[in-house]
Structure formats: C-alpha cells, structure tokens
C-alpha cells in the first residue's frame, strides 16, 4: 500500500476549492474549524475493513472445522450439500486514537500559525468527522511525556472534552514518541485506528520499534507528518545564529552554504521514515502547513476506503 504522494494530491485538488489554511487558523474555536472542514468534505459512511454480522454480503467461504457453525449457510447446504460460511461486510464502530505531538519543534511556524496549531486542527477535524460517523475517538497529546489522555469513546460531550483537551495543551519540550505509543499499545487492547500527528524530527530508528509494536497488535496506523514549508525548502538567506527551539542549541549558519546540505539530509531522513513506514505497513502522509486541511482528510479517508475494498477483494480472492 503505497502512501499517497503529496504532490500528486495537490495536483488533483485545485487550491481555490478548499479553505485557505491561514483563514481557517484565524478562527479561534477548534470545534468550529473542524466543522467547517468536514462540512466542506464528503458525507456518508466509510466502509469497514472488517467482516462480521452486517447487512451487506460479501462472500462465501468453505467451512473448516473450528469455524463458528452459526455462520453456516444452511440454505446453500440444502442446495449443494456442502458447508459454506456466509460472510458479510461489517459496519463496526471504529476506535480511533489521535496521537498529537506538542513538542517544542511543533511550536515552530514560519507562517502565521505554528505546526502545532495545524496539527491540532487536523486532529480536531478527524475527531469531528469520525464522531459524526458515530465512531469512538480517543486523544493522546505528548511531548517527552504524555500530557493528556482521553480514552476512545463515543458519547455525548466526549467530542467537546476532546476539543478542550486539545486547546489547553501547551507547547512542550522535546519529542519522545516512545511513551505515547507504549501507552496506546497498553490501553487499546481492541484493534483500532491510530493516527499519529507529528513532525517526526527524531532519528527514524526510535520510531521503528514502537510503530512495529502497534502494528503487531493489529492496529491500523497512519502517520500525518506535519511540516512547515520552511523546513522543507529552507528558504533563509541571511547568515545568522540558528536557535534550535527544542534543544536550545545555537549554531552559526550561513544558509547560502548550508541549504544544499540541509535539503539532502532532510530528504535522506524523509526517505528513511518513508521506507520504515512502508516496511511496517504504516500509512505516511505529509502535511505541509501551507496546504488546505481537507487534503489531509481526503487523503486519509481515500486511502482507508481503498484499503477496505482491497481487504474485501483479497478476501474474495482467497475464497
């Protein structure tokens, strides 16, 4: 499952038809922002990738000892004298965990808003969208340690609490993905959907183990990589003391000389992260903060829909 290419997406979605992120960020209420994005988006249910008792039939499968006899299609048995299990497309309630990185590096922003603002809005939008579909949404915000935890629920007022938790989360210090991923792995026994919103400005090796652990528990993992355009392009011209907001380190940098090296190292890191995600079966989406938010949702949901069909198709093929 290849990740969705950013450039390809932005080509398919003309800029004018979406909400300008800068205009969106000027809206103070997070809930309002999420609602605005979702309303401009599609409506309708998404397909569940899981099978179970449902309305929509998907396929038959030959009975093997150990299968639940409740699912035997007695009518077919009557017709063909063979045992078949009848399988349906399941419409379950999704359990989604939003992991929002609020480390200091997320506080950086060369535009009018920071990466953290963007990530919070994205998380709020996903949460709003899913709760519209009556899915359970949980939230974990973190920097070097977990700051807020809301378990995945669907109940009245939960979404509001989630928005509040997002809003009051202050800018933290460094980034440590280990603790939040472990926490999610411990608490979410039931399989679900884990969405990680982070800039992933950390060595890729530290990511691999935790993401792999989540995947092994059967969670579906998507990583929304929030990046500032300045981080991608390194557009500086003046030589200056560059201050690392996360570690407070200072370096004298002349961008004229450093740009090329930066871009190549950045590309290396991005490639490493990408290959890691590919290896683990994790969806990676780049979210430059200059892009409209709908893109993110669109990409995410589009890929999920596709995955759902692919799963169904694969199941059909295996039958």
């Amino acid at each position: 499952m290849p990740p969705v290419e950013k450039n390809a997406k932005s080509a398919t979605h003309p800029r004018g038809s979406f909400l300008d992120p800068a205009a969106l960020m000027r809206i103070k209420s997070l809930e309002l922002r999420a609602r605005l994005v979702v309303q401009g988006f599609l409506s309708g249910l998404h397909r569940s990738p899981y099978h179970g008792f449902s309305v929509e039939f998907t396929e038959y499968r030959q009975y093997t000892p150990g299968d639940d006899p409740r699912y035997l299609d007695w009518r077919l048995y009557a017709r063909s004298d063979r045992y078949y299990l009848k399988r349906f497309e399941d419409e379950t309630n999704l359990r989604c965990y939003l992991l929002v990185d609020l480390s200091r590096s997320m506080g950086y922003g060369s535009l009018e808003y920071t990466k953290a603002d963007y990530a919070k809005t994205a998380a709020a939008t996903v949460a709003y969208f899913l709760s519209k579909q009556r899915d359970a949404v949980g939230l974990v915000t973190f920097d070097t340690q977990i700051q807020e935890i809301l378990p995945a629920r669907f109940r009245p007022g939960h979404l509001h609490r989630l928005f509040l938790a997002l809003e009051r989360s202050p800018a933290g210090k460094g980034t440590d993905l280990t603790a939040p991923l472990e926490q999610v792995a411990r608490t979410a026994r039931k399989r679900g959907f884990v969405v990680l919103l982070s800039d992933l400005l950390a060595p890729p090796e530290s990511l691999e183990l935790r993401l792999g652990y989540l995947r092994s528990q059967g969670h579906e993992v998507a990583v929304l990589r929030v990046l500032d355009p300045a981080e991608i392009d390194f557009p500086f011209n003046q030589a200056a003391m560059f201050h690392d907001v996360e570690t407070d380190r200072e370096l004298y940098i002349d961008p004229v000389f450093a740009r090329q090296q930066y871009q190549s190292r950045f590309a290396e890191h991005a490639a490493a992260v990408r290959s890691l995600c590919t290896r683990l079966g994790v969806d990676l989406y780049d979210l430059p903060t200059s892009q409209p938010l709908e893109h993110a949702l669109f990409d995410l949901l589009n890929s999920r829909m596709r995955r759902g069909r692919q799963v169904a198709r694969k199941a059909g093929v295996s039958r």
């Binding site: 950086y108 400005l201 500032d228 030589a239 003391m241 560059f242 201050h243 907001v245 004298y252 090296q261």
Partner: peptide
Amino acid sequence: IPRGRQEFSSLMFLSPTPPR
C-alpha cells in the same frame, strides 16, 4: 559576529558553517 538570530525547529540536519 552575526547580530541576527533565527529560530528553527530543529538543527538536526544542519552543521555549523565555518567563518569566512
């Protein structure tokens, strides 16, 4: 010594430029 000071998210991809 440059008077400018530039905030940046992370210096992990940067190395100091030697003085010219």
